[in-house]
Design a protein around this nucleic acid. Structure first.
Length: 251
DNA sequence: AAAAAACACAACCGCCAATTC
DNA sequence: CGAATTGGCGGTTGTGTTTTT
């Protein structure tokens, strides 16, 4: 059990995370009253200083909880309602490119939050892909021949290692040259579905270099746009069979 | 109609990078 | 320069709702 009880007040404190384990902090679902307090306060005072916000606003919540509630639910820009087919398609494309970089994916879909996209992926899209015989993590066909060693596909850049490294890429990306080079390589090599992971890995590798430059957001942003809008990236269900069978070859 | 199972999603946790002191 | 703090992220869990048996 991860935590005492939802919708309760934390009765005891532990050594870590002073923010969320403070005595007297309320947890669990937010009430409309709390929402209103938080909303009004942020509209008046602006976002930020989350740690001290609850006290200033008069809420018995930890700062993290307030931030999450605001970001995922209360922000005026948050779009409620069903994910449209267009959005779903975009999520699929971006996930193929970026893996589980939910924040980065959400950044490309106006009004949607990382949490929402993550939930939608886990509850809908991953199952949908599996039902189509596609590995939701790799976007490659599920292992048709368990005995084949080449069928062990390489994972897309998983967040288990350094999740934030690429997640932050949109704002702190490596130098323009790297992005453009990787992008052009990707676009030129569109006969191989491995290319998208390859270029992303290139970006990751380059991002770890010491000489990270001052790449602008616009460069990365427009690059991503070009990828998203380009037919180079096919929907998994649209992938030609020839490409699928070719996907066992490894980078 | 009731119970069980499956689903959907809000919320929490732990970790890490960036920032501040 | 190092420690402490803060903000942000992805993974996971808990619970309410819906569907199935």
């Amino acid at each position: 059990m991860k935590q005492p009880t939802r919708n309760s007040v934390v009765a005891s404190t532990s050594k870590v995370t002073p923010c969320c384990s403070k005595v007297g902090m309320k947890r669990g679902p937010w009430t409309p009253e709390e929402d209103e307090i938080l909303s009004n306060y942020i509209k008046k005072e602006g976002e930020g200083r989350w740690r001290t916000l609850p006290k200033r606003a008069g809420l018995l919540r930890c700062g993290k909880s307030c931030r999450l509630r605001w970001m995922n639910y209360l922000r005026p820009s948050v779009k409620r309602g069903q994910i449209t087919p267009d959005e779903e398609d975009l999520i699929l494309r971006l996930h193929r490119l970026l893996g589980n970089r939910w924040a980065l994916i959400a950044g490309r879909i106006p009004g949607r939050t990382d949490n929402e996209i993550k939930n939608y992926w886990n509850t809908h899209l991953s199952k949908k892909l599996i039902s189509q015989g596609i590995d939701p993590r790799t976007h490659k066909p599920l292992n048709p021949n368990p005995n084949s060693s080449t069928s062990i596909v390489q994972q897309p850049p998983t967040p288990t290692s350094k999740p934030n490294k690429v997640a932050n890429y949109s704002s702190t990306c490596a130098d323009e040259e790297v992005v453009e080079k990787a992008g052009s390589e990707y676009l030129e090599g569109n006969d191989s579905l491995d290319q998208d992971h390859t270029w992303l890995m290139n970006l990751e590798v380059d991002n770890e270099r010491d000489d990270i430059g001052l790449c602008s957001d616009e460069v990365f942003s427009s690059f991503l746009n070009s990828l998203i809008n380009d037919d180079v990236i096919l929907n998994p269900q649209q992938k030609p069979q020839a490409v699928r069978s070719d996907s066992n070859s490894k980078e």
